[in-house]
Amino acid sequence: MNPIITLTLQANLRYVRVASIIACNVAEIFADFTCNSTDIAEFCHAYELSVSEAFTNSVRYAKPAQPEKQVTIRFSSDNNSLAVSIIDTNSQFNPVTQAPDISSYPEGGYGLFLIHRLMDTVSYTREDDTNILTMTKQATMTHDT
């Protein structure tokens, strides 16, 4: 995986959109070389949505004791897949993948489930008091020819 861009934002909901737009744009530039045109929109939307979810979670679970909190977004790629990592210094969490029980009208808890459904692989690691959530998707869509 070759690094593309690393971006550090203040952990504030105000910047959720910044993070997700950048993710969408990086995905678009990346997909331009590998996807056919109809798949690009879907590929970009997956990153836009996943980063929006992950960044929101990072801000939501930030410890109130640290006002100067930051969230780092790191993009890297190899030939045909693009990885984006969301890095924060919050406490360790349990990356549940379960779908929330929709019939009970839940207002939250969809984020990680959505990410798992949108991305090919999602991995969570804890390194030196930081959480690293890495999401990867293949750009070449497999279509029967």
């Binding site: 929006s52 979810e53 009208y105 207002e107 969809y110």
Partner: peptide, 19 residues
């Protein structure tokens, strides 16, 4: 233009309230 799960959560919350 764009809706994520926080937006969805808000709509679900409104639906529950209306119900």
């Amino acid at each position: 233009e764009f809706l994520d799960s926080s937006g969805l959560g808000a709509l679900v919350g409104i639906a529950r309230k209306k119900k």
